[in-house]
Write a protein that binds this DNA or RNA. Structure first.
Length: 262
DNA sequence: ATGGTAGCTGGGCTA
């Protein structure tokens, strides 16, 4: 069984020990990371290499930053989302990974823009970014491979995916334009793995640091794993692991993982 | 009515 996970760690320097501990406990084949908040050279590569992972890293000073950790060889790395050569934000990395049996899969670690305040140029950037993601996903789907697009999409897909929809109506994570942009990506033929396994609400992946949101379970579901038809055909399960959100000095996000029959 | 938290960075931005 191949396990692929995603986790927005909100600073890999602050979460290095937690990420290592979670890898030891969970032993995924692939882990997509977001919000590294460090430059590529500062990524604690050896910590993860010592645990048996190859690292593909796209860092950035202070903000953003994405990575893919893989137990299996990484053959090809793409570090930019096509469509805007002037975009300097490190929000996308993609890797082709060779499995022991000779099969190859393709995985992307995604950190979509937040978009607040809305409306503003930041929301415009978010919507344009999701549109670029849609265009690139269309290209990737044509390969007809096992494809996994995992990360923090900063989109709450349904009212069931937020503790209080009314309070979030005007937020860039829940505004109609954001949900529509996300849905357009899905409509290319991708499947939200968590929903495919369990369409109930309340399966949150993020709880704000403020106002005791975690203790009250005031959460959002904004971290998603999207699967190509070839990946969906192998889907055995999806799981949100709430444990790390309860550790000391946690990220505000918690990991999401899928198991594929590969 | 405001601030409430966290991280990066060294004041204010991002989330």
């Amino acid at each position: 069984m191949l396990k692929i996970a995603t986790w927005n760690v909100n600073s890999i320097k602050q979460r290095e020990a937690a990420a290592a501990e979670w890898l030891k406990q969970t032993a995924p084949d692939v882990l997509c990371l977001q919000e590294l908040k460090c430059q590529t050279e500062s990524f604690p590569r050896s910590t993860f290499e010592d645990l048996g992972y190859n690292c593909a890293v796209l860092g950035q000073k202070s903000f953003n930053g994405v990575a893919i950790l893989s137990k299996h060889p990484i053959d090809e790395i793409i570090t930019a989302l096509p469509g805007d050569s002037t975009d300097e934000q490190s929000r996308y990395i993609e890797a082709a990974i060779s499995l022991p049996g000779g099969e190859a899969i393709r995985v992307a670690s995604i950190y979509a823009p937040n978009g607040n305040p809305a409306p503003s140029p930041k929301l415009d950037y978010k919507l344009a970014w999701l549109d670029r993601l849609k265009a690139h996903a269309r290209t990737l789907l044509a390969y007809e491979e096992v494809l996994v697009l995992a990360g923090d999409y900063n989109v709450i897909p349904r009212p069931l995916d937020v503790y209080n929809p009314a309070a979030w109506a005007e937020d860039a994570l829940f505004r109609l334009e954001s949900r529509q942009a996300f849905r357009r990506v899905l409509h290319l033929g991708l499947t939200d793995a968590v929903l495919a396994c369990d369409s109930r609400g309340g399966q949150y992946t993020f709880w704000d640091y403020q106002a005791g949101a975690w203790q009250k379970d005031w959460g959002l579901r904004i971290d998603h794993i999207l699967l190509s038809p070839q990946a969906l055909a192998r889907l055995h399960g999806a799981r949100i692991d709430r444990k790390p959100r309860n550790w000391d000095k946690p990220s505000d996000h918690t990991p999401v993982a899928v198991s594929l029959g590969l």
